[in-house]
């Protein structure tokens, strides 16, 4: 740990971005004009690098930084915090989070445009399907591909709070097992292809098998999947799915902008 402290906070932050690691750089911009100890870099789940001259300030800033990294779409911003002497101090929180991951279960023909559009929107894409005939580079050139059966998911797939899951196996038993895995993960979004009746059938079956999920767990589940744009073709459905993922991440509702007061809402 002492070794890491030698790295300046700004350099630690640059390295974090380089390695696609979530981090917050906190700067007391006013203090930087005249003194040292004006900057801290917080790397997700690690000890902070650097320090402030004031401990109260440091503790408050760190808890804000940690909270920011828990949000789905955290924004950089300046915030006023009180120091030990109850004086207001302006701190700029510069937040870096790696691009979100779209994880698609099922390598059918309709998964191709979903993965393609998501990649074009800057998401990391992962396709999971045990059938290597479908789950191959030719069909998914931009995606990481994992050849795995549902019983192996826990062992070989890592899901974080920045992983958005789409379930489209076209196989109700596989969808059920995938959903069981997904609902037990940290994924903030789990879209499942198919009508409401299918959703009910899968959830009932899981319940009978002893998988009882909470209301909060199930709120992450979107089924029928996608935004309501009347999509019919695979490409149109893919647009509606990717748009829904973006809307969930940015905490938007996904309707028409016509008549809206703001184009962007703050997190």
């Amino acid at each position: 740990m002492n070794v890491q402290k030698k790295l300046a906070p700004f350099d630690a932050w640059l390295d974090a971005i380089d390695q696609q690691q979530a981090a917050v750089l906190m700067t007391i911009t006013e203090a930087s004009l005249s003194q040292k100890n004006y900057r801290i870099c917080y790397l997700e789940n690690q000890s902070p690098i650097g320090s402030f001259h004031d401990q109260a300030l440091e503790l408050d800033a760190l808890s804000i930084a940690k909270e920011k990294l828990r949000q789905s779409n955290p924004q950089s911003e300046s915030l006023m915090i009180q120091d030990e002497n109850e004086l207001d101090v302006d701190i700029f929180f510069d937040v870096f989070v790696p691009s979100p991951t779209l994880m698609v279960f099922g390598a059918g023909h309709d998964a191709i445009p979903v993965v393609k559009y998501a990649a074009e929107c800057g998401m990391k894409t992962v396709v999971i399907d045990q059938r290597s005939l479908y789950n191959n580079e030719e069909r998914f050139p931009h995606a990481e591909r994992i050849i795995a059966r549902p019983e192996d998911f826990t062992a070989c797939i890592r899901v974080t709070n920045r992983t958005y899951i789409v379930v489209m196996n076209h196989h109700i038993e596989k969808d059920k097992q995938t959903l069981k895995f997904a609902l037990s993960s940290l994924a903030p979004y789990i879209g499942v292809l198919g009508p409401k009746s299918r959703r009910i059938k899968i959830l009932d079956q899981l319940y009978l098998e002893g998988c009882h999920f909470t209301y909060t767990d199930l709120q992450r589940m979107h089924s029928p999947i996608g935004l309501d744009i009347g999509a019919v073709s695979s490409e149109e459905i893919a647009i509606s799915i990717v748009a829904e993922v973006i809307a969930v991440r940015t905490r938007h509702k996904g309707g028409f902008l016509q008549g809206a007061e703001f184009i962007h809402q703050s997190s």
Binding site: T29, Q75, S76, E77, S78, F92, D94, V95
Partner: peptide, 15 residues
Amino acid sequence: ATVIKVKGSAYRKEG
């Protein structure tokens, strides 16, 4: 140069 605070419809956001 980093945008640290914005009010109004300036084009780029904080960060």
